[in-house]
Amino acid sequence: MRKLQLVVIIGLMVAVLMPSLALAGGDKASALIVVADTRVITETDYYHGFMRYLADAYNTNIVVFAIWCTVLTALYGVALGFLMDFLMSKTGLDLKSRKIIEH
């Protein structure tokens, strides 16, 4: 029960205070209005088609664009993590243990 309470309290704190983290992440963005120039992107293949979709989302629905950015960053990070894990396991190095020596 105590653990559950702790999880709920931490969850609420995260939800309420999270925006401050990002706000503190860098300088304030200047009040520019930026529009992605979709005329340059021709839908010749899947890659450009997806780029066109993202640029359209950026121009028309910024929330959808933001969700795509966050989800894709997380997914790409996890995918790269697993891929690198697989490749590193082929090196023959012990990647599960280490000694802590400070000096």
Binding site: A22, A66, T70
Partner: peptide, 8 residues
């Protein structure tokens, strides 16, 4: 991750 969302 949260920063990515708000900046987006």
């Amino acid at each position: 991750l949260y920063g990515a969302f708000t900046y987006a």
